[in-house]
Design a protein around this nucleic acid. Structure first.
Length: 573
RNA sequence: CGGGGCGUGGCUCAGUUUGGUAGAGCGUCGCGUUCGGGACGCGAAGGCCGCACGUUCAAAUCGUGUCGCCCCGACCA
């Protein structure tokens, strides 16, 4: 490819719309242009990167027995009614109506359509296991698209769906996909860390997210510094309650004190000169309309997701002021467990509080030396709080560290949720009709591009890993008016092309600085510079983008040398 | 949806407070000089100032409405 013909308009200045490195660089390097919020056009260089990632994904999916299919983007509403997700998906679904007033959506995901596809064809256990995948655009009307390709409304996704006869085989499919994902992200130059996660609206019990660690990531990942435990912060577990907690202190006498106007933990701690962890927060929630109390240590926060799962309720919301007044007898800020008649649930860490400070269920008053067992009782204990960096690891004696992560993939065991809802069954060997056991495995292809750039860039631009670079080599004659240089450049370019190497020749009538800047910005892993001085000695300069190290290579050996580097890609990555 | 900010040549932005008919740098085109890290000189093109309505002799500037974009939050396979 000739640089003079490549449609890759580079920008000297950073567009105001971009905030993070990957977004800025993709716009500046001419990979991407915005069409609407969260919707983008891919220019030739951007598309080449996408294609390379897709190729790696295809190879790894095929290697574990995946077969590629292409599914509709426009999907009929009936399918979604069958699983109940036409309403469950809510505002996030792009919906449209055809001229006959039939309802459709732009597929946000493809569980429904693939299950129906398989339902009508798979009849027997002999046809299993089946692993189908697709790579195509998905559509979600995100509340807040952001950061370029990081969270778009139209984005490219690979989804694989596995269909197995039982849990045991699903397990095989799951771990095959899990291991394939580890290989894929490693090959793309963005090793991703698998972490335990929440399965969200999609359902299922076992699930891992693949996180590329980067400061621009939207998720907080917690990982143990001692053992292998790693989890998304929203899902991370607290350390289970120790069986025998020994309290050195004596139970002090319960006392009520006036705390006028002090209704928050901050106000109480400064008023009484105590620490937040000596307080017991009492939160009143409405679970499916019924009030419940939740006890959390003063310096902790409740994780609503955990509470909802624990209570197994549909709707969960913080109680309104009126309900709080009615159930506790006091306005917001003075609730406490003593004397409450609604069911109380305590987080593990709240259970161990001794001589705690709580609200007195009376405006302007708090209680000192509150103790469970003596002053109140709870219905049960659970892991209910948000986990933060510094908290103990739930699996070992270590402690958790935090890092930002970009979720580039997720694997789920779906079980029979969709096959049951859609009637996708098969006949077992024993002749019994059974729902297919499903798994699904997604990779955000376009998001992966952003993640790779977040991890691989510097002041000057993108540093593409060789495996997904749009082109591997750029040839730059320093002085475009020197026929010796331009002629040599053309020859080298042709030789590299003939050797099957992806190469761009910068044949533009530009000053050297401009060409170097563009080469760095776009991020070609290798640059061959052809200048007067080294050429006089029969040498070419070979610069590695990553560390900007330059070596001199005899003109005749350049192709062989590059081939060697491409084989041993460590040098560039 | 709540909060904040922004819409002025392709890009980055000034001008808006105090209305008087639009500017700079970069980029683009032409000519010349220059050629190892985003050169220089001269010349040129390019904007109904997001859109609509209103106030006014006069609106980029004031008012109302509307659309779009960005950031924080809620949200999220």
């Amino acid at each position: 490819m000739l640089m003079s013909e490549l449609y890759s308009p580079t920008l000297r200045e950073t567009p105001a719309e971009a905030e993070i490195a990957s977004h800025q660089l993709m716009l500046r390097a001419g990979l991407l242009r915005r069409s609407a919020a969260g919707i983008y056009s891919y220019l030739p260089l951007g598309l080449r990167v996408i294609r390379k990632i897709e190729k790696i994904i295809r190879e790894e999916m095929d290697a574990i027995g995946g077969q590629e299919v292409l599914l509709p983007i426009i999907q009929p509403a009936e399918l979604w009614h069958e699983t109940g997700r036409w309403s469950d998906y809510g505002e996030e679904m792009f919906r449209l109506t055809d001229r006959q007033k039939r309802k459709f959506c732009l597929g946000p995901t493809h569980e429904e359509i693939i299950t129906v596809l398989v339902r009508s064809e798979v009849r027997s256990y002999r046809q299993l296991p089946l692993r189908l995948y697709q790579i195509q655009n998905k559509y979600r009307d995100e509340i807040r698209p952001r950061f370029g390709l990081m969270r778009g409304r139209e984005f490219i996704m690979k989804d694989m769906y596995s269909f197995d006869r039982d849990e045991k085989d699903l397990d095989k499919s799951y771990w095959a996909a899990y291991r394939a994902y580890e290989r894929i992200f490693k090959r793309c130059g963005a090793p991703a860390r698998p972490v335990e996660a929440d399965s969200g609206a999609i359902g299922g019990d076992v699930t891992h997210e693949f996180m590329v660690l980067a400061d621009a990531g939207e998720d907080l990942v917690l990982y143990c510094s001692t053992c292998e435990y790693a989890a998304n912060a929203v899902q991370a577990e607290g350390r289970p309650r120790q069986a025998a907690v020994s309290h050195p202190a004596q139970m002090e006498e319960l006392r009520k004190i006036a705390t006028p106007g002090a209704s928050t933990i901050e106000e109480i701690t400064s008023l009484l000169e105590i620490k937040a962890e000596e307080c017991l927060k009492t939160l009143i929630y409405l679970a499916d309309g019924k009030p419940v109390g939740v006890l959390i240590r003063g310096d902790h926060s409740l994780n609503e997701l955990k509470l909802q799962k624990f209570l197994d309720c549909e709707a969960l919301e913080l109680a309104d002021d009126e309900t709080i007044l009615k159930t506790t007898g006091a306005p917001v800020g003075f609730a406490g467990p003593v004397g409450l008649t609604i069911p109380l649930y305590a987080d593990y860490d709240a259970a161990d509080l001794f001589n705690a400070v709580t609200g007195a269920n009376e405006a302007g008053y708090h209680l000192l030396n509150v103790n469970m067992g003596r002053d109140y009782n709870v219905a049960s204990f659970a892991d209910l709080r948000e986990i933060n960096p510094g908290d103990p690891c739930p699996r070992c004696d270590g402690f958790l560290k935090g890092a930002r992560g970009i979720e580039v993939g997720q694997v789920f065991k779906l079980g029979t949720k969709y096959s049951e809802a859609l009637g996708a069954t098969f006949l077992r060997e024993d002749g019994e009709e059974t729902p297919l056991v499903m798994g699904c495995y997604g990779i955000g292809v376009s998001r992966t591009v952003a993640a790779v750039i977040e991890q691989n860039h510097d002041q000057d631009g993108i540093i593409w890993p060789l495996s997904i670079a749009p082109y591997q080599v750029i040839v730059v004659p320093v002085n475009s008016r020197d026929p010796k240089q331009t002629e040599t450049a053309r020859l080298v370019y042709q030789e590299l092309q003939a050797a099957g190497i992806e190469v761009v020749l910068d044949d533009r009538q530009e000053r050297p600085g401009v060409k170097f800047k563009d080469a760095d910005l776009i991020g070609f892993p290798l640059r061959i510079t052809i200048g007067a001085k080294s050429l006089a000695q029969g040498n070419l300069e070979l610069t590695i983008r990553k560390d900007k190290k330059t070596i001199f290579v005899p003109k005749k050996e350049i192709v062989a040398h590059i081939k060697g580097i491409l084989k041993d890609r460590e040098i560039c990555e």
